[in-house]
Simulated scan of single mutants.
Amino acid sequence: MSQLFSPLTLRDVTFRNRTVVAPMCQYSAKNGLANDFHLVHLGRFAMGGFGLVILEATGVVPEGRISYGDLGLWDDAHIAPLKRIVDFLHQEGSAAGIQLGHAGRKAATPLAWRNGFDETEEEKAAVAFETWVPVAPSAERHSDNPDFQMPTALDADGIQRVIQGFVDATKRSDAAGFDVVEIHAAHGYLLSQFLSPLANHRTDAYGGSRENRMRLLLEVTEAVRAVWPEGKPLFVRISAVDGSPGGWTIEDSKVLTHELKARGVDLIDCSSGGFSGYGLKAAPHYQVDLADAVRAAGLPTIAVGLIDDPEGAEAILAQGQADLIALARGALEDPNWPLHARHQLEGGGDAYQLWPKQARDRIRDMDRVLGRRQ
């Protein structure tokens, strides 16, 4: 068996293989509620053979959403539609994860496919349009782009609201049946903003030194781990480097990894960027070295970022650079990527077992007629 299609166990959860669907915002919820689109969008990845499917960044409080179209978990009403998705993922053999996040000063932005806030009054009612003033570590805009508003700086009460939001959303994640919670501390969103000297210019206990800038993420992590079942793994997604001059560095991430491990985190999901001046050039496997460096600091990692070749994914695992391989846009392009990759890496009759039972014999028969993949 290839390493890519070998199981991995973290705490009491076993992933059937090492392929992961990374969180991808779909901006298709109303009032934070999942709907049929999310069920079909996410369900196809489970049918496609992925070991773990992680839902998009889900707002722990209403003002923590990137847009009004984001999923939410700030209310008990959000549990049932998410449980419907989780149950289907489990039925098809995938573990279910959810990324809990707060967008901070990058909240209340337009939907990705619109030209700014160009909704008509009629459309606003139909899509449950909302806007609000974002919050941040410091009262500074993310950029001069008009899509981003001037935020207000969080005070002590606001910080406690953020922490409590993560706690409450974690409890609801368990009620919905999720196997994994991932805390979103990457890509220039709120927890990433606190970590980075590019966005955090506070002079209190949450700003200044690296120790202070890590404080909020570590407090959130402690609070989440305390209410997340002992048998379920906890992930944290970080920008291992900001990739911008004067920003968070890989050495910072190594120190952070040590602190997160001490607080019960099981894996680091390694991405990068989130601020102006990002200097990394996107290319196949361009973030793998980050996952490798963080892994050496003491925790398993997910490698992500233009990894779409099965042999390359296998090599990353074989060389000990990461423990799981995540696809985002590659999964959108080919929701059956694991099914195809297993045939490519292993071939033979066993590879057909990853196909859904409703399809595997028909696919095998088709391949036999065509003289391929036998």
Rank of each mutant, 00 (worst) to 15 (best):
Q358M: 13
I85H: 11
G277Q: 06
V135H: 13
A351H: 05
L354T: 08
R342Y: 05
I363C: 00
Y286F: 15
L100G: 09
R372D: 02
R213S: 14
W228H: 07
V241E: 13
G371N: 12
F15G: 04
G72Q: 07
F235D: 04
L327V: 07
R263M: 07
K357Q: 14
G246S: 09
E121F: 00
F166T: 01
D70K: 05
R210S: 14
E92P: 02
G231L: 05
F37V: 00
H102Y: 03
D204N: 06
N31H: 14
G274C: 09
I163Q: 01
D118P: 10
P300F: 04
K281Y: 12
L216N: 06
L256H: 12
E346F: 09
G330D: 12
A46P: 06
R364G: 02
G264Y: 14
A153V: 07
G51Y: 11
R213Y: 06
D174M: 12
A128S: 15
I163G: 00
A315L: 13
H90Y: 13
H258Y: 02
R65T: 05
G158P: 09
V135P: 04
D36C: 00
D155R: 12
A318M: 06
V220H: 02
G116I: 13
Q319P: 04
I307Q: 10
R114M: 11
K83I: 00
P197V: 00
A293D: 14
T9C: 03
L306I: 10
T203G: 01
H343F: 03
A351S: 15
E140C: 01
R295I: 10
A322P: 13
A77Y: 00
G97P: 06
K261T: 02
V294T: 01
D367Y: 14
E222D: 15
K281V: 15
Q164P: 00
A175H: 04
G330F: 05
I238R: 04
R84D: 11
D36A: 13
G348E: 05
S196G: 06
Y286T: 09
I268E: 11
F166S: 08
L267Y: 03
R362P: 01
T14Q: 10
Q287W: 03
A139R: 09
V135I: 14
A322K: 01
I163H: 01
L111K: 11
D12S: 15
H187I: 08
